[in-house]
């Protein structure tokens, strides 16, 4: 069923708040990855807060949907979503990158995390393994693998693209956060992805493409992907790195840069957040 306008507005408001909380969390330790956390915001928020069959009170439910954040550096946006789902108190966002707190990249000490992330590429085959095991168990659960576009440079991504098609993993959905910017520059400068949709198609995947900041479009594509039969689906979600903060948008400099106080104040002003939040 299509989302109501009210629900879309609610999810967009959640995204605005999550952006504020994530930038606040990254600002405090003067370390983290703002750009990719902001670009993946709607994708993660839609999946966790609207779509996935996942309940923190039944975290071990064998038939829960799984999400693997293969682009592990966007951990803060994952954490904010997990907190909203009730896996841990939202106050724990302030422990990001601190001793005993939330790790810079996801690990399984954090409730709700399904697979450690960090070394790029590796989360995707792990998600595939989940999908294969779930199929063996005849589980209806879906597995969502969230990939970065820079991450597509990794060879193992294409190994997995080949094998997921071989094993007809229609319960595996890859979503590429296609913000076109990686650490050293644009994807075109660093490693051109060329005909990205064509590449996935050639590997035997069903390819969907949408605006990755448009909740309604994401809802449509994910629903189509969920209904796939006989082949895995990839959603190429066109996004903007640093989305929501004008001076971060499209800038590779904000991939993994600490947020200085002045920039933080400006960002909070744009997002309607509080500097002392």
């Amino acid at each position: 069923m299509a989302l109501t306008a009210e629900r879309i507005a609610e999810l967009n408001e959640l995204c605005r708040r999550f952006r504020i909380d994530v930038l606040t969390a990254i600002h405090a330790p003067k370390s983290g990855h703002p750009g990719g956390s902001l670009s993946v915001c709607e994708i993660l928020t839609y999946l966790y807060q609207e779509h996935m069959n996942l309940d923190a009170n039944k975290a071990d439910d064998p038939d829960r949907d799984r999400l693997v954040l293969s682009k592990g550096h966007a951990a803060p946006m994952l954490y904010r979503n997990l907190a909203e789902k009730g896996f841990f108190p939202v106050e724990e966002m302030s422990t990001l990158r601190r001793m005993g707190g939330l790790a810079g990249h996801p690990n399984m000490h954090t409730p709700g995390v399904e697979m450690p992330g960090g070394p790029l590429g590796q989360g995707f085959p792990a998600a595939q393994g989940m999908a294969m095991a779930l199929k063996l168990n005849k589980s209806p659960a879906k597995v969502y693998a969230i990939l970065g576009d820079g991450e597509l440079d990794e060879g193992v991504i294409w190994e997995t693209a080949m094998s997921a098609a071989k094993f007809k993993l229609d319960n595996l959905i890859a979503i590429v956060d296609y913000n076109k910017v990686q650490l050293d520059g644009t994807t075109d400068e660093v490693m051109p992805l060329g005909d990205l949709a064509g590449k996935w198609e050639a590997f035997g995947w069903t390819v969907l493409e949408c605006d990755g900041h448009d909740i309604e479009a994401l809802d449509f594509c994910v629903s189509v992907a969920d209904a796939a039969v006989g082949a895995p689906t990839v959603i190429i979600a066109n996004t903007i790195k640093g989305k929501g903060v004008s001076f971060m948008e499209g800038k590779n400099a904000w991939h993994g840069k600490a947020i200085d106080d002045e920039s933080f104040a400006k960002a909070m002003e744009e997002l309607g957040g509080e500097v002392n939040a």
């Binding site: 085959p125 989940m130 095991a133 060879g155 997995t160």
Partner: peptide, 12 residues
């Protein structure tokens, strides 16, 4: 690489 990481996912 794919094989070992796939096994990681299966084990979960």
């Amino acid at each position: 690489q794919n094989m070992v990481a796939t096994a990681a996912g299966m084990s979960t």
